[in-house]
């Protein structure tokens, strides 16, 4: 981790000194344990504020949308794919962004660690051997990092940046035995009524703060459909059909574009796993059209294209 941080600061400092970019977007140290919030650095003196940790859960591609001037951004595998998607959709020009790829071994969410540890956490230390030491008031526990990883990181097969100008470290190994869609298959195996109950239950604590939408790099509509007043597509109260409509439609809008970066889940103050919606769409895109988001900027996302060979099994 420290080698990452040193390298990140070195690159940021160089780019700013050379005036190759106006701004570097990275992560800073948080005021609480287990969170590294995004930050922007504009002068080489400030690069010491940049950091890296296993809590860089927010997707930095989100901060590139419609940005003016030349910027550098640190990007994990998923962030990188989101940037590729941005380029494909014309939200970012390739020449305006210096992508500094960060090979990633997965991120850990505050909520997961807190839930497992139980008490309030004062400090989390990650050892080089993959163990994580969690300290609370008068108590210390040791965990394997692999047990604390975010669900999206556990099933991630794109840990290494796909498009970059330079890399912070050598690419990391991708385990071969990853079952990417186990979560989706578990839901698919249930009866229809049980599935509805599952999703009803999933969103039951949603407070409609829209943190999931706002943390999502693909959610960049100037006016989101839930904010439209004429016509008003969806009610704004806490009625379940309205809340569900928001989640379904948001998921649909990300179909073929979502990189399963998990920022939505990490941002949710209520810990809702809205990936249960989006992961199914990711699986469908792969099964039906052999499409994975953010691997190439030469093609439009799956739902925006048509070929005569597209499967039509659902058509009568």
């Amino acid at each position: 981790m420290h080698t990452y941080i040193d390298k990140i600061r070195e690159i940021a400092s160089r780019l700013l000194k050379e005036e190759a970019v106006e701004m570097v977007i990275g992560y800073q140290e948080g005021t609480l344990p287990m969170i590294s919030p995004p930050m922007s650095v504009r002068s080489a003196e400030d690069v010491e504020k940049l950091t890296w940790s296993s809590h860089c859960c927010i997707n930095l591609a989100n901060y590139l949308t419609d940005i003016k001037g030349k910027v550098a951004v640190f990007a994990k595998g998923c962030d990188c794919r989101s940037i590729v998607n941005h380029i494909a959709e014309g939200k970012v020009k390739r020449e305006d962004v210096v992508i500094i790829g960060v090979p990633c071994n997965g991120m850990m969410e505050r909520r997961t660690i807190s839930n497992i540890f139980g008490d309030e956490i004062e400090e989390v230390v990650e050892e080089a051997d993959g163990t994580v030491i969690v300290r609370g008031k008068g108590r210390e526990e040791k965990y394997q990092k692999s047990d604390l990883l975010r669900q999206c990181c556990r099933v991630c097969v794109h840990k290494n940046p796909v498009l970059y100008d330079e890399l912070v470290a050598d690419p990391v190994a991708i385990p071969e035995d990853i079952q990417r869609y186990k979560e989706v298959e578990k839901i698919e195996a249930r009866e229809i009524d049980k599935r509805w109950k599952f999703f009803e239950n999933l969103i039951s604590t949603c407070i409609r703060c829209y943190a999931c939408r706002d943390a999502c790099p693909t959610c960049y509509c100037p006016t989101c459909f839930v904010d439209e007043a004429q016509p008003q597509w969806v009610g704004k109260g806490d009625d379940e059909p309205d809340v569900m409509t928001f989640h379904i439609l948001r998921a649909f809008h990300t179909a073929g574009r979502c990189t399963d970066c998990g920022a939505c889940v990490s941002a949710c103050p209520m810990g809702i796993n809205m990936r249960a919606f989006t992961k199914k769409l990711e699986k469908d895109c792969l099964d039906l059209w052999d499409w994975e988001a953010g691997l190439t900027s030469d093609m439009r996302p799956a739902l925006e294209t048509f070929t005569p060979s597209d499967p039509e099994d659902n058509f009568k």
Partner: peptide
Amino acid sequence: MLTHIGIEPERLQFSWI
């Protein structure tokens, strides 16, 4: 996805006509 989340498949039908 609608059937995935529990909307009855009978309500969702597509045809080319």
